[in-house]
């Protein structure tokens, strides 16, 4: 049943800020986002937090709970003991706007740098034919809710501002893989992955996979296969010619 929990919530803006202590009621079945909402309603009406669906579907409520990147709406209070102090801080890799809200525009920039789906020439709408087994690979990546927790976690950009320019991050490298594996996409994406989007900087630590709330196997199913395609091409001088004739799988 109900008890009072100790919370430390980071409050502040782009200039300064720090952890604030709160003692707040917790009821059965609640998630951390419920507690943040209770703080807004009772103690801190201007506490800033993003959320929409409250069901792990929209990817708005990303933050760090006791230092771990998580969705606030999918972190149940029952995973903590009653005497544990729970610390909630904004995602670290992105600039803070206010309290738990960060500036995630980096991700929208990266999204724009990935060339879009290229429809197969000559195939009319309604005539697309694909087998379930062939779409499933890309479908796994399209489960992504763009919470950007993987982007926040990847050590290539976490605490390395200087790498942001040349590295698309796991979410958008996965987007390249998704299009590359799309049965009907008409574009070749392999060399750009390496050169323009920074696939080479990924050293397959799998930290991105660990935090993904959608349990997408980002590293194993997207990044490593993409790296393999890059490698194939590098060591095969005939590939450039062959690929002109190759039909996409």
């Amino acid at each position: 049943m109900g008890y009072k929990a100790s919370f430390k919530v980071w409050r502040g803006d782009d200039k300064d800020g720090g952890l604030h202590d709160f003692l707040v009621e917790v009821n059965e079945g609640e998630v951390v986002l419920d507690i943040i909402h209770r703080l807004q309603a009772t103690q801190a009406p201007d506490l800033a937090v993003r959320w929409n669906c409250k069901a792990g579907k929209c990817g708005s409520c990303s933050a760090e709970i006791n230092g771990r990147p998580r969705l606030l709406c999918m972190t149940r209070m029952s995973t903590f003991t009653e005497d544990e102090t729970i610390t909630v801080t904004p995602m670290r890799t992105f600039p803070v706007i206010k309290d738990l809200v960060t500036d995630v525009s980096f991700n929208y920039q990266k999204a724009r740098e990935i060339p879009s789906f290229a429809p197969p020439p000559g195939v009319q709408p309604g005539d697309y034919r694909m087998q379930q087994v062939d779409v499933e690979r890309s479908q796994e990546f399209r489960k992504c809710i763009e919470c950007f927790l993987c982007q926040n976690t990847c050590h290539v950009v976490r605490d390395h501002e200087e790498n942001k320019q040349n590295f698309a991050g796991p979410r958008f490298l996965m987007r390249v893989a998704e299009l590359e594996m799309h049965p009907l996409d008409a574009e070749d994406r392999v060399s750009a992955a390496q050169e323009a989007h920074g696939l080479g900087m990924c050293n397959i630590t799998k930290c991105c996979t660990e935090v993904c709330p959608e349990h997408i196997k980002i590293t194993d199913n997207a990044l490593i296969p993409l790296k393999e395609r890059v490698a194939d091409r590098k060591y095969d001088p005939l590939f450039a010619v062959a690929s002109l004739f190759r039909r996409k799988r």
């Binding site: 879009s116 429809p119 709408p125 694909m130 087998q131 379930q132 779409v135 799309h182």
Partner: peptide, 17 residues
């Protein structure tokens, strides 16, 4: 159908529709 030309990937029937 237009969504497929934008890149959507719906679940498929056995004959690929």
């Amino acid at each position: 159908w237009e969504l497929e030309t934008y890149g959507a990937l719906f679940d498929r029937t056995k004959d690929g529709r």
